[in-house]
């Protein structure tokens, strides 16, 4: 079995004395979409913050292609090739779309042509942004801002991207657009850790998945296995019976 690109080994993390993640072990294989599912408060965002260095681990270790990430700063982790697209389509709203993309290339040793090529490449998936390069990002719709946030992470040509709830606050048609782009990215060889609440659509595009509940891994497996997993139902519905993820957004 090939070495996973990203590996989390028995990690604990939280905020100050409040422990949120407990003994989490996960692997993300290269070129795959791995989903992390769970309802609000399951520890999904804490997980992404811990991986990206925004909060420290209290135990365990994280490696990217065998290189230790834990204990490093977010800047250093970004330099190691992991880009984190934060929930809430956060971009630099006061700056233009072009400036937002260039910020993703800050301090990259590239000439003007290479920078332009990187921008164009990142925008191939989001042609709707190509016509708005000189507009301020704050004037874009929520969906376009989400696309820009992903494109901003991609210009650096990372080894993998970590995408936190890209569907948050978006209309279904826009969610579909964003998810299609994630599939296209995976097909281009980009490794993706996708953290989501919406279950069925996420499992449709994922190659593997984990279910978080109370900061612990409650289930893991192929999408087909997870769909029938009682742990997934419990993660969303507590211990009550019901269809998988009936309480989650469709």
């Amino acid at each position: 079995m090939p070495e996973p690109l990203l590996h989390l080994q028995n990690i604990d993390a939280g905020y100050g004395h409040v422990a949120v993640l407990h003994d989490v072990t996960m692997s993300v294989a290269e070129g795959k979409i791995v989903a992390v599912l769970g309802r609000n408060g399951a520890g999904k965002s804490t997980l992404t913050k811990a991986i990206s260095g925004l909060i420290p681990l209290s135990a365990g270790e994280i490696t990217l292609a065998g290189e230790r990430l834990d204990g490093r700063s977010p800047v250093s982790i970004a330099g190691a090739g992991l880009q984190y697209v934060v929930e809430g389509h956060r971009v630099f709203r006061a700056q233009t779309v072009r400036a937002n993309l260039d910020i993703g290339l800050y301090k990259q040793p590239l000439d003007k042509e290479a920078r332009s090529a990187r921008r164009d490449h990142a925008l191939e998936l989001f042609p709707e942004l190509s016509t708005r390069l000189n507009d301020v990002a704050g004037s874009l719709s929520g969906g376009q801002q989400q696309m820009l946030a992903i494109a901003q992470a991609l210009v650096r040509e990372p080894r993998m991207i970590l995408v936190d709830e890209p569907s948050l606050g978006l209309a279904p048609v826009v969610i579909e657009r964003v998810f299609s782009a994630l599939v296209a990215l995976r097909d281009l060889g980009v490794t993706i850790l996708l953290v989501e609440q919406i279950v069925e659509r996420t499992l449709q595009i994922a190659d593997y998945g984990y279910v978080l509940r109370g900061g612990r891994v409650a289930a893991m497996g192929e999408p087909a296995e997870l769909r029938t997993s009682p742990a997934l139902q419990e993660a969303y519905m507590g211990n009550s019976a019901g269809g998988a993820a009936a309480g989650a957004r469709p």
Binding site: L54, P74, V75, A78, Q83, F92, A94, I103, Y106, R156
Partner: peptide
Amino acid sequence: SALSAVAEDREIAMLRGIN
């Protein structure tokens, strides 16, 4: 541009490799 990015959202700036 990096200074403006840090001014607007320090966390995202860090995640994009700006110190």
